[in-house]
Amino acid sequence: MREKVIMTADEIRRALVRVAHEVAERNRGGQDLLFVGIRTRGVPIARRLASYISDFEGIEPPTGSLDIGLYRDDVTSGVNPVLRQTDIPGNVNGKRVVLVDDVLFTGRSLRAAMDAVMDFGRPAQIQLAVLVDRGHRELPVRADYVGKNIPTSRSEEVRVRLRETDGEDLVAILEQGAE
């Protein structure tokens, strides 16, 4: 199996810095902002966005993490599901919640994540930031901030690796059968 590199570490950094600027611009410099990273890889991306905003705005928005396991409707897999800690700091009421994920694909995870956030209260807005939008939506969901649009075929696999979880920063497409 071959892996085609789509974004290098530098490209990921530049894309996320730009997204952080866009988020700050749309949200009055980051006031009332709450980043919520969707587990697993949305969490470190959310932390990076918050830290970039703190670099150029001087305030670091709070960051939470969300496991959407309790809200999913996906098919059963062959292993026991494991639920990890969800941690939403403070109160979401009146906040501008920015959900953060690594890849936007069918939109189903996002639907689950929005349901989960609504269970914590009534945010003023929910926005969505993703590192990669690969298309093939099955629900009416769109991202407000996109690191990179990557046209893919449905059978291809987009793999995101991050320093915090995988030891390196990389976005790649796995090409089936290109051996």
């Binding site: 587990r39 697993t40 897999s77 292993v79 026991n80 599901p81 494991v82 990890r84 793999r159 995988d166």
Partner: peptide, 13 residues
């Protein structure tokens, strides 16, 4: 398989 901390490692019980 893509590593994911959201999946267990034990066969479905």
């Amino acid at each position: 398989p893509a590593p994911s901390e959201l999946l267990g490692t034990e066969p479905r019980r």
